[in-house]
Simulated assay, not measured.
Amino acid sequence: MQSPRRRYFVMHDHAVNPVIAELRERIERLEGGEIRRRLVLPFGVPEIDGRLPQGGLALGALHEIAGGGNGAVDGAATALFAAAVAARTRGPVLWCMTRADLFAPALAQVGLSPGRVIYVEAGDEKALLSCMEEGLRHGGLGAVVGELARLSMTASRRLQLSAENSGTIGIAIRRWRRQTEASDFGQPTASATRWRVSVLPSSPLPVPGVGRARWLLELIRCRAGESADFEVEAPDAKGRIALPSDLVHGSSQAEAWRGRASA
């Protein structure tokens, strides 16, 4: 015969299970699990979207982008990549910076029209982070972009939590005034993804001229995902990147480019 104490243990176990399940659901909601699972911004490129959780960039999250080098060319590509992502969101875009050197017509070429952008010039990076945080908390913006050199774990966590609460995507463009600041990019942050953009030779044309720009797009870090790199064509007028046609068909020239990129 089973002892009363044993019967009590069994009944208690059955009663606790649904409570634990409910608590887990509540915790997931508080952590933004539903937002990350349901709301994403796909690139429309299966090879890239397949490497990202839920098939796209998480909305309601912070993402980092940096140039592959310290030069102005890779820096410009980084800004264009961020603009292309922001262009495919809905609503105004808040762009925070400490240096007023952004070229608005170039952003328009990748789909981000000047009428959608609200420019904020901050006195220093501390003020810039405050502007980004307020923008992410607002909830009525399509995206919040900030150009900064340093991003601590504490600051990135504040931005990430603000993005989760509002559902707005945040993009931190890492820009450095000197090479010594670049080492900060390797430090851990709360960002959902971390990208690096490097300029490659443009797409070849059958006639003399300059073809569509190409980038080496590196996914350095992805929460709940794996690192990867892609050779892509720069965004079109609607902010959409694409794989070069010769890479899709696996030409010998494409294989040579892959070898140079990996080197």
Rank of each mutant, 00 (worst) to 15 (best):
G60C: 03
V73M: 04
L141Y: 10
V210W: 06
G139D: 03
I220W: 04
I65P: 00
R260F: 10
F103D: 12
V197M: 15
C96K: 01
P4T: 02
V117K: 01
G67S: 09
V117F: 05
A84T: 06
S166H: 11
N70C: 12
E181V: 03
D124L: 06
M153A: 14
I241W: 08
R258P: 00
A76E: 13
L57I: 12
D49A: 12
S251P: 05
I173Y: 08
F103L: 10
R214L: 03
S227Y: 01
R150H: 11
R116Q: 11
V120Y: 09
G111N: 10
A127D: 14
W95Q: 03
G91S: 11
V10I: 14
R158H: 13
S113A: 13
R150T: 01
S245K: 11
D236M: 09
R177C: 05
R6A: 14
R174A: 14
A143I: 04
A82C: 11
D49Q: 11
S162F: 03
E133I: 01
R158T: 06
G170E: 00
S152A: 09
H14R: 15
P42Q: 07
R260M: 11
G44E: 06
L243E: 10
I173D: 06
Q2E: 09
P206R: 11
L41G: 05
V93R: 06
A213I: 02
L148D: 00
N165Q: 15
L159T: 04
D124M: 05
F43G: 02
E31V: 00
L62P: 02
A83R: 04
P18I: 05
G186M: 00
G71P: 00
V120M: 11
R175T: 15
A106K: 07
L128A: 14
I173R: 15
S252I: 03
A66Y: 09
V85Q: 11
F103Y: 15
P208A: 12
G32T: 09
A82Y: 04
A100M: 10
I169D: 05
S203V: 13
R24E: 14
